[in-house]
Design a binder for these strands. Structure first.
Lengths: 215, 215
DNA sequence: TGTACATCAGTGAACGCGCGTTCACTGATGTAC
DNA sequence: TGTACATCAGTGAACGCGCGTTCACTGATGTAC
């Protein structure tokens, strides 16, 4: 199917947004290999070469997508960091937002878990690590608040708890992805969150747990 | 650098093993995009076209790699399933073997977490899901043994606990991967395993926990 | 044991395809006077 | 308000490159008699 009519002239600012959205849509539907210049341009009604009026090259779109994802993650974390009140309900809120974000944007796991996006681009790999570190760092801050307030056990490092927090969701996200949406993500989180919550709740302190080793 | 000498004639059986090993090595070093026919053939001392004496095509190698990974995972799970004694130490043993396996074969996470390996190949996607389901199913069996023996809490489904068991490791594996090996995988597991162990240990039963919902 | 033939692994040249990207040109929109 | 010019977005043809794959040929290894 050829281009029937010349696309309407549209300012670069608008086109950049359109293209970024189209990229997220294509990534969600077809994964990274579905993100070709042809598909991307067609999605916004342009001819492939038209793309280059608005982005320097394909890498620039991937960078934009990565920044978009990072911003969305950090937005969730920041909101919850700023909330008042006991920590556990706030963490539950963040968990819920995290699941919603991923269910609404299938592109997120596809980008985060696909190494092709940073294979051979050290700068992008570093950027991805920075984004993840920022997200985990903020979660760690929230957890540390709870530890200092005496709400959460403090014999396990907040950083590790933050990573484990991600672990409540992440394998399930991948299973959902591989199963083609069959795996019940929200149901899984509903099962394991109470376990995590209870395990984090501070008990009367015992000695020696801090030095426990995984051999 | 051109081929200096004609490669020594070697039987297809041996060559297939060599090629599979070379594929794992290349995947570990460079990821999926590093797995080109040229690189693969050179790795075993052949000219690219020589590869086709031993495999039908590139897909066949990817299938072989996937089966290899599946076999290694299931081997670990089966051993632990067959062990005698209380369940928690057996789970810890499996965790340890899992971490060792992944540290020794960086290709495993690269294949499991990279969607490019099954993008557009429904059969391979299904196979990957079957392998993961088999692994998780066996872990679930072990956990169910513990639940029936009254060692582990049984108010959370064994299947979800199995997925959470993976969650002890998986985000850390990805962080390790993205950070270029900096993230301390074994250290993380050492921190969170005790939490998981304690959380799973059966306490005096309370009512109503089973119906708890994640909203 | 030696000879003839079949089988089988290795080689290099060439292919086709997809994809990211470039470029000269077109025509619309905005601006200066 | 109208005219001249600059700017800017869209177009289609063409490119170069990498990569998976094919194919006819070579030469070594195994086998039958």
């Amino acid at each position: 199917m050829k281009q029937k009519h010349r696309a309407q002239k549209t300012s670069t600012g608008v086109r950049q947004d359109q293209i970024a959205q189209a990229a997220l849509h294509l990534l969600a539907r077809d994964g990274l290999k579905g993100l070709s210049m042809t598909a991307l341009a067609r999605e916004v009604g342009l001819v492939p070469s038209g793309f280059y009026r608005h982005f320097k090259n394909k890498d620039a779109v991937l960078d934009a997508v990565l920044e978009f994802i990072g911003a969305r993650l950090m937005a969730n974390a920041s909101v919850v960091l700023a909330l008042e009140g006991p920590v556990l309900p706030r963490l539950e809120k963040l968990l819920q937002k995290h699941v919603e974000l991923i269910l609404a944007n299938k592109a997120i796991p596809r980008v985060m878990f696909s190494e092709e996006i940073f294979a051979g681009r050290p700068a992008r790999r570093a950027r991805l690590y920075a984004i993840l570190s920022g997200y985990l760092g903020t979660i760690g801050c929230i957890i540390r608040q709870g530890q200092k307030a005496g709400e959460l056990r403090d014999d396990i490092k907040a950083e590790n708890l933050a990573v484990l927090f991600l672990g409540l969701v992440q394998p399930a996200v991948i299973l959902r992805h591989i199963s083609g949406g069959q795996f019940d993500l929200a149901g899984h989180v509903g099962q394991v969150w109470p376990l995590f919550r209870e395990a984090l709740t501070k008990k009367k302190s015992r000695k020696g747990r801090r030095n426990e080793k995984f051999s």
